[in-house]
Write a protein that binds this DNA or RNA. Structure first.
Length: 456
DNA sequence: TCTGGGGTCCTAGGACCC
DNA sequence: TCTGGGGTCCTAGGACCC
């Protein structure tokens, strides 16, 4: 078993708060290009594949999340919707700024994803003579202050959900963002923990089972068949039955719905167990050389991530697949190698990955996607010297210094400034990002690189 | 023509050991 | 002769998340 955990559970006097960015990617685009404020805008996934974020105005036009772009391209043009390729450098930077602000507002913060974080804070004690209204007003007012601060400093809209547990905080946050039954604007801040119990139950009863955190497609279908249509019914389902179908995960979820916290806040992100880089190709790959280039590119990106995380990999998997959509015979395959000694050296990882790419390629099986997964990750500081090490210690140190220099150059002058020859240049399979926003909050040096790609 | 990417956790079942 | 049963480790696959 692992060592000490960094998790922290809310005490009975504490509240869990979930803060997340509304339409985060679309909102980031509006921050760097105020001309789009108030206009319908969508952000596309990698390769300009699907819609992954919509401004409120785009939502109001009935544009659906996850919809393939090519299916709605015409419609978007007709409606005058602004379309952006995803700009992860921008979103990651805005995310970091957001988290920095949030840290000032809570006692402990768990960064849960690029656009959301859980926090812990003390629930104000009720003084004599005050009803639940007073306590509610306190944290709700706190939430509105926080929203104003984030809006003023970053230009981002956020919603705030407050409750005794994480699952309930997610639910409260969803409630805060949904429009009230009679119409009107959403609350933006909602404190479930301050409601009288009848009112809290009404909120649970109004939350569709599909909207409960932890209930995905499969479990939602089972719940519906079982007559469990909303969060309240799930909360009150016999535990034995839930355990049968969903195991401990389901039981924990139910406990959290009942207000008994069993998902602690992870205050220090746990070390990654694996790291993956994968992409779909802009055009299918039907040639061995291109697959080698793609796998080399993903491997060197994965190696960079590994070094940034301060880790080494003990095993490496390459996977490939054809398109699942075009009806012809589907091909998917993967191969794994163990490294004799865990490594974070791009050259070592390339030497392991390229033969796998070679072996996985099949003529007449055009590939749509490939990826590299680094596994059996361990702390980079340990395991420096080993009897089986391929290089003597002083040469290993020179390799590490070389990697660090390459990483510095790429960070400073833009990704791809220094790269391995095996990665190829100007290859036809590289990602499509035809509508990338230009403005960057990150380093100026990134700008020429972006432009060069667009013009090339 | 064109349908995202990167993770985690849990369980079941087999191999192996004593 | 007797052919048990519990533990651990590993892997594959399923389900979920944003």
């Amino acid at each position: 078993m692992g060592g000490a955990t960094s998790g922290r559970q809310a005490s009975s006097r504490e509240a869990v708060v979930l803060i997340d960015g509304n339409n985060f990617y679309a909102s980031c685009e509006a921050v760097v290009d105020p001309a789009v404020i108030g206009r319908p805008l969508v952000v596309l996934s990698n390769n300009d594949g699907c819609i992954v974020s919509r401004s409120a105005e785009a939502r109001a036009l009935g544009i659906r999340m996850g919809q393939p772009y090519f299916q709605v391209q015409r419609q978007l043009e007709r409606l005058g919707v602004i379309v952006r390729s995803s700009n992860y450098a921008l979103y990651a930077d805005m995310s970091q700024r957001l988290m920095t602000v949030l840290e000032e507002w809570v006692e402990a913060l768990e960064i849960y994803s690029i656009d959301e974080a859980f926090g812990l804070l003390q629930r104000p004690r009720r003084t004599r003579g005050e009803g639940s209204d007073a306590s509610s007003r306190d944290l709700t007012a706190w939430g509105h202050d926080l929203r104003r601060d984030v809006r003023r400093r970053l230009g981002l809209p956020v919603a705030v959900g407050i409750a005794p547990t994480k699952v309930l905080a997610k639910l409260a946050n969803k409630w805060a963002k949904s429009a009230p039954a009679g119409g009107g604007t959403p609350l933006a801040v909602f404190d479930l923990g301050a409601c009288p119990s009848g009112q809290a139950e009404a909120v649970l009863a109004a939350t569709a089972i599909e909207d409960v955190w932890g209930i995905g497609k499969k479990l939602a279908r089972w719940c519906r068949l079982r007559g469990v249509a909303h969060a309240l019914a799930l909360r009150d389902l016999p535990t034995g039955e839930l355990r049968q179908r969903c195991g401990v995960v389901g039981v924990r979820l139910q406990q959290e719905l009942r207000g008994h916290g069993c998902l602690p806040l992870e205050l220090v992100p746990p070390a990654k167990r694996e790291t993956c880089v994968s992409r779909s190709f802009s055009t299918p790959i039907d040639n061995r050389e291109h697959l080698r280039e793609a796998v080399a590119t993903y491997t060197s990106r994965a190696a960079e991530k590994l070094r940034r995380q301060g880790q080494r990999a003990g095993a490496l998997t390459v996977f490939v697949r054809s398109s699942p959509f075009n009806g012809t015979s589907f091909y998917a395959n993967a191969a794994t190698v163990r490294l004799p000694v865990a490594s974070d050296d791009t050259a070592v990882l390339l030497a392991a990955a390229l033969p796998l790419a070679q072996a996985l390629f099949k003529p007449h099986k055009p590939l749509q996607k490939a990826g590299v997964v680094l596994q059996e990750l361990c702390d980079g500081a340990t395991l420096q010297h080993h009897l089986l090490a391929p290089l003597p210690p002083e040469q290993q140190q020179r390799r590490s210094a070389l990697m660090a220099t390459i990483d510095r150059l790429n960070r400073h002058y833009g990704s791809g400034t220094v790269q391995w020859a095996a990665c190829g240049l100007q290859s036809p399979w590289r990602m499509r990002r035809s509508r990338l926003s230009r403005a960057a909050t990150t380093r100026l040096a990134d700008l020429p690189v972006v432009w060069a790609r667009l013009e090339g």
